[in-house]
Amino acid sequence: MTRAIPLEAVLVVAAALFCIGLFGALSRRNLIGVLMGIELMLNSANINLVAFWRYLEPRFITGPTFAIFVITVAAAEAAVGLAMIIAIYRSWNTVNADSVDSLKG
């Protein structure tokens, strides 16, 4: 694997995934779409962690450990974020990000 594919190729895939996720998180109107973009970004960070572990320091297990912690935090974030979206839907009756603007001056 490390012979066949250069590290840069994996990094470019992760960077593309991160940028697509960033675009989704910034520009989707649906709040659930925003959350999906954030999940994509977390995934790309995980790809980078695993790739650097595999290519640069395959003897130390720190990379996968950190990736598992990132997955844990992503699960917690998804649960709380979706609960907040459901609470917003109850009081505003909408899930569009730009309709929830009662703090707007």
Binding site: R29, I32, I86, A97
Partner: peptide, 29 residues
Amino acid sequence: LILFAIMLTRSNEGDRLLTKYWWASALIA
């Protein structure tokens, strides 16, 4: 979890998919 949230928030998204300044976020990305 995401699929459940979608089904609990029966959304009427309207005609626009992206926010008004989506080109700015595309440029940033």
